[in-house]
Write a protein that binds this DNA or RNA. Structure first.
Length: 380
DNA sequence: AGGCTGTACTG
DNA sequence: CAGTAC
DNA sequence: GCCT
DNA sequence: TAATG
DNA sequence: CATTA
C-alpha cells in the first residue's frame, strides 16, 4: 500500500513492540469506524442502506455459523456507505469503501440498478427464513431455538402458544410471546421521555442525590426508540452511595404500574452494579415497552455512558481500537495491562484502571475525536 | 487461516 | 455450558 | 462477508 | 443438594 | 440446563 501505510506500520511496531501480535495488525487498519466523522444530513445512499439492512435482518434470524459474521460485516459496510457523501454509481466505487468487498459491492450495484437484490428476494420466499424470522422476533428466542422449532414442524406463533411438538417456554419467552406485537414496535422518543420522567421522579423521592440518564437511541437523539435504557448512579463524595436502590425502586415502579413484567433481575439487588430487564408502559392503555434499568458505581459513570449510548458498531470499534493499543475497554472503564489467556481469550488479570469517570477521558486516551451521542450512529 | 467487543443472566 | 441479550 |  | 460450566 | 460429587 502507500507510504503512509508503511510509516504507520513502523510506528506501530515501535510503540507496541510485539510485531507479530494480532493487536498490532489491527492497528494497521487505517480505518477505525469509531474515528469516522460524518456530516449531518440525509444519506444520499439511503436506499442502499435500507436494502442491506433487510439482508442483515435475514441473517440475524438464521445464525448457521457464518451468518453471525456476515451480519457484522454488512453493518460495517453500511457504516461506510452512510458516511459516503457521493452517490454510489459504480462497482469500483462501491468496492473502494472500507468493509465493502466484491460480493457486497455487487449487491450494491444491483440495488442501484434495480432497487433490490436477487438474494433478498430469494431468501424472503423461503419458508424457513420467514418462519425463523417470525420466531426469533420473540424476546428470548434466538436463531438456535427458532431453527429447532422449525425443524420440529412449528410454523406459526399459534403453534408455539399451543406448545406443539412439546416445546417448552421459559418465563421470559412466555412474556415475549404474550406481548409479541407491542414489542416489535418502536416508540416515539417523546413517550420514552415521559416514562423516564415518571421513573426519575420516583427515584429522586427515594434519594434526591441520584443521577439518572436516559440512554440508548434516545441519547443519540433518534426520533423513535426501540427500548428504554436508564442508567443510575449517585455521587459518593458525601460518603453515601446508591446501594440498595433497586430493592426500593423496582417495587415502587411496579406499584405505580409503570413496570409490568420482569424479564430478568439483578443478581444482587444491593449491589452498586445491577441490571434489571423488564417491560413497562405509559398507562393502562399504553403499549408494552422494553425497559432496562442499570445501576453503576459512580466511578464508572463515563464508561457506562459510553457503552450504553452505543451504537453497537461504534462500541465494538472503540473496544477493538482499545485492544489494539494494549488497553481493554468495557462498561466499567478503560484498563491497561489486562492479561488474557491467549488461547481462550479469557481474562486472567483485571489490569489497571486508566479512565472511567468521563466519556471525554476515554475518547482522549484512545485518540478518538470527541463525538456527541448523535454522531455515534454507525448502522441504521 | 483465523480474527471479528466484552459482559451478564437463565436454565 | 449453550443460548440469548445488551 | 471482509480484512490482514 | 450445591457447585460448576 | 446437565454434570459432578
Amino acid at each position: 500500500m502507500s507510504w503512509l501505510y508503511q510509516r504507520q506500520r513502523k510506528t506501530a511496531k515501535k510503540r507496541l513492540g510485539h510485531p507479530t501480535s494480532w493487536r498490532m495488525v489491527n492497528l494497521l487498519h487505517l480505518r477505525w469506524i469509531c474515528k469516522d466523522q460524518r456530516p449531518i444530513g440525509p444519506c444520499v445512499n439511503q436506499d442502499i442502506v435500507d436494502e442491506l439492512n433487510k439482508l442483515v435482518g435475514i441473517h440475524e434470524s438464521r445464525l448457521g455459523g457464518d451468518d453471525k459474521w456476515k451480519v457484522l460485516q454488512y453493518r460495517k459496510a453500511i457504516s461506510s456507505i452512510r458516511k459516503e457523501t457521493a452517490r454510489i454509481t459504480s462497482l469500483s466505487q462501491a468496492q473502494g469503501l472500507f468493509g465493502v468487498g466484491k460480493k457486497t459491492a455487487t449487491k450494491i450495484m444491483e440495488i442501484v440498478e434495480n432497487g433490490k437484490t436477487k438474494r433478498l428476494e430469494y431468501e424472503e420466499q423461503l419458508d424457513d427464513t420467514r418462519v425463523c424470522k417470525l420466531f426469533s422476533a420473540i424476546y428470548g428466542v434466538g436463531p438456535r431455538l427458532a431453527w429447532q422449532w422449525y425443524q420440529l414442524g412449528l410454523r406459526t406463533l399459534q403453534d408455539v402458544r399451543e406448545g406443539k411438538a412439546g416445546v417448552k417456554l421459559t418465563p421470559a419467552q412466555r412474556i415475549g410471546l404474550e406481548h409479541y406485537d407491542d414489542l416489535q414496535l418502536r416508540m416515539p422518543r417523546e413517550e420514552a421521555g415521559v416514562i423516564f420522567g415518571r421513573i426519575k421522579e420516583i427515584a429522586l423521592a427515594i434519594d434526591p442525590e441520584l443521577d439518572l440518564q436516559l440512554m440508548g437511541s434516545y441519547r443519540r437523539g433518534q426520533p423513535n426508540c426501540g427500548d428504554i435504557d436508564i442508567l443510575i448512579t449517585r455521587p459518593d463524595m458525601d460518603g453515601r452511595t446508591h446501594k440498595g436502590i433497586m430493592r426500593k425502586l423496582l417495587p415502587a415502579l411496579h406499584e405505580k404500574d409503570i413496570l409490568t413484567k420482569d424479564l430478568s433481575m439483578p443478581h444482587d439487588l444491593d449491589d452498586l452494579e445491577a441490571k434489571y430487564m423488564g417491560l413497562c408502559r405509559l398507562g393502562p392503555d399504553g403499549k408494552m415497552r422494553r425497559i432496562d434499568i442499570l445501576a453503576v458505581p459512580y466511578a464508572s459513570w463515563g464508561a457506562a455512558l459510553l457503552y450504553f449510548t452505543g451504537d453497537d458498531i461504534f462500541n465494538r470499534s472503540m473496544r477493538l481500537l482499545a485492544s489494539s493499543k494494549g488497553y481493554s475497554l468495557n462498561q466499567r472503564g478503560l484498563y491497561k495491562n489486562v492479561v488474557r489467556d491467549p488461547k481462550t481469550r479469557v481474562k486472567t488479570v483485571t489490569g489497571t484502571l486508566i479512565a472511567s469517570r468521563t466519556e471525554e477521558d476515554i475518547f482522549a486516551i484512545l485518540g478518538v475525536p470527541w463525538q456527541e451521542p448523535a454522531q455515534r450512529r454507525r448502522a441504521k
